[in-house]
């Protein structure tokens, strides 16, 4: 097991001239991309900071504990399971943490910026704070845990795409902003707090559970399942009430199908409201 600690330097997070907070884009710092690298090699990995590429060692304080994985290329990727990357410092302008990650573990100690865990295929990311918009965008697999709140477009699609999350598991400890799980086709999202407007918009598959309240959930859904355990505000006027059932938690749920605004033929989404 190798633990790579990356502490963002204060002069970077503090911003250019103390005014502009130019984001660092950390997509080159995933366990699979760093596996098999020595401390010196990790420090030399290029990272985009605004319109210039910098060395990781110039932006982060880098420390490595434990043994680096053996081999290079594919072999190194195999050993990514044994790599944990820990981000520290003020991460609120570090974007793309764990973007495209395939294996291993990332821990981010603090609030993270946009696209955390986007296109993720495997491994685990834990955010000990809030995650900004597009966390888990187009996620295919793996596990993403956000202990705080998630911004808008959690696990949604990229602009223009018709598919969002297709696999994996996401847990949000707090609230999720609007359009959580848009165009979701597979996988699971658990939101322990409230969901903003239009959770599960255009949903086609997979499962979203909202323990708190939700606003207009399930609009234009054609498949998949949304469960709201709190209140539904502004329920869509184009859903049909089918029956009242008892949920796994023993509570009574109203079961709706929709969205009929997509026409009856396509309206195969299911919405459970406690």
């Amino acid at each position: 097991m190798q633990t790579i600690k990356l502490r963002l330097k204060d002069e970077v997070s503090g911003g250019v001239g103390g005014v502009a907070r130019v984001p660092v884009e950390a997509d080159s710092l995933t366990p699979d991309k760093l596996a098999g690298k020595s401390e010196a090699e990790i420090k030399a990995v290029k990272v985009w900071w605004g319109n210039r590429e910098e060395k990781t060692g110039d932006l982060f304080e880098v420390s490595v504990e434990g043994e680096e994985g053996e081999g290079e290329g594919e072999e190194a990727a195999a050993s990514a399971d044994e790599v944990k990357v820990v981000f520290e410092g003020d991460l609120s302008r570090v974007k793309h943490i764990g973007d495209g990650m395939k294996a291993g573990e990332i821990e981010a100690n603090g609030d993270v910026d946009m696209h955390c865990g986007a296109m993720m295929q495997g491994g685990k990311i834990t955010v000990r704070g809030n995650a900004d918009c597009w966390a888990g965008r187009e996620m295919k697999g793996g596990e993403l845990v956000i202990e705080g709140d998630a911004g808008a477009n959690l696990c949604a699609m990229y602009r223009g795409e018709m598919t969002g999350m297709t696999g994996g598991k996401v847990v949000v400890g707090g609230n999720a902003d609007e359009c959580a799980g848009q165009y979701m086709a597979g996988g699971e999202i658990l939101i322990k707090g409230n969901a903003g407007m239009l959770a599960g918009l255009n949903m086609q598959g997979g499962k979203i559970t909202i323990e708190g309240d939700a606003v207009m959930p399930g609009a234009d859904m054609t498949g998949g399942e949304i469960t709201v355990k709190g209140k539904v505000l502004d329920r869509m006027p184009s859903f049909r009430l089918v029956e009242t059932t008892v949920g796994e938690d023993g509570g009574e749920y109203k079961k709706y199908i929709g969205d009929l605004a997509m026409t009856e033929r396509k309206a195969k989404g299911v919405l459970f409201v406690k």
Partner: peptide, 15 residues
């Protein structure tokens, strides 16, 4: 959404 449901003929579901 309500207008869409009505245009497609689902008068029954619209509140």
């Amino acid at each position: 959404s309500a207008l869409r449901a009505l245009l497609y003929g689902y008068e029954d579901v619209v509140p």
